[in-house]
Amino acid sequence: MRFALLINNAEPEPGQVPDEAIAEMQVAMSAYTDALNAAGVLVAAEILEPTARTQTVTRRDGDLRVQDGPFADTREALAGVFLLDVPDRDAAMTWAEKLPATQYAVVEVRQAALSCVDGAWAH
């Protein structure tokens, strides 16, 4: 079963987080992804750019609209995604509890309803 661990947090202002704290988190995240890889459950992991660099694309009533910036002005934003292939929700929750980002972010655990593998969608 595939589960997404969605990292949501308030985006800090430039310089708000000390360089030492950033370096410590990078080491912790590297160790976490090493553990996911060693367990054979990591499908993909991405940390996203800040929302200030976002573009939003919508199509309403046949009109394509491209907007600079995020879809919604919120205090917290999607900052990263880990996609895991694990036996069940309990396993996904166990990995979510170990995610270093829980120190500063909310981690949402969501099962994939459909997955596209080799161009084919399946449950």
Score class of each variant (00 low, 15 high):
73 D>M: 06
15 G>T: 06
11 E>A: 09
51 T>I: 06
119 G>S: 10
78 L>P: 13
112 A>L: 05
44 A>M: 06
101 A>K: 04
79 A>D: 09
62 G>F: 03
122 A>R: 08
94 T>E: 13
119 G>I: 05
110 R>Y: 15
48 L>N: 12
3 F>R: 06
37 N>H: 04
14 P>K: 00
2 R>Y: 15
13 E>I: 12
78 L>D: 11
115 S>M: 12
21 A>Y: 05
72 A>D: 09
19 D>T: 04
57 V>T: 07
105 A>Q: 10
34 D>N: 00
73 D>P: 01
89 R>G: 01
23 A>P: 10
34 D>I: 01
17 V>P: 03
38 A>Y: 00
62 G>L: 01
21 A>M: 05
92 A>T: 09
12 P>Y: 02
5 L>V: 10
17 V>M: 14
112 A>W: 07
38 A>T: 02
42 L>D: 01
33 T>S: 00
115 S>G: 12
56 T>D: 14
26 Q>Y: 03
10 A>I: 02
64 L>A: 04
62 G>D: 11
97 E>K: 00
26 Q>T: 01
45 A>L: 06
80 G>N: 14
117 V>M: 09
6 L>P: 11
1 M>D: 07
97 E>Q: 00
65 R>Q: 15
34 D>T: 00
38 A>D: 04
81 V>C: 14
27 V>Q: 14
47 I>H: 00
11 E>C: 03
119 G>T: 08
34 D>Q: 02
8 N>Y: 05
93 M>Y: 09
116 C>K: 10
101 A>M: 09
92 A>V: 11
7 I>N: 08
12 P>A: 12
21 A>R: 03
65 R>I: 13
85 D>C: 05
73 D>K: 00
40 G>L: 02
107 V>H: 13
59 R>M: 13
108 E>A: 12
22 I>D: 11
34 D>K: 05
22 I>K: 04
118 D>A: 14
67 Q>P: 06
57 V>L: 10
109 V>Q: 08
43 V>Q: 10
27 V>N: 07
85 D>V: 01
8 N>H: 15
73 D>Y: 04
79 A>V: 10
59 R>N: 11
74 T>V: 08
87 P>C: 07
105 A>E: 04
98 K>Q: 13
29 M>H: 06
57 V>K: 11
114 L>T: 11
107 V>C: 12
10 A>R: 08
27 V>E: 04
1 M>F: 11
69 G>E: 03
115 S>V: 10
119 G>Y: 15
1 M>S: 10
36 L>F: 04
61 D>G: 14
115 S>R: 05
17 V>C: 02
96 A>G: 12
7 I>W: 11
97 E>R: 05
20 E>G: 12
123 H>L: 09
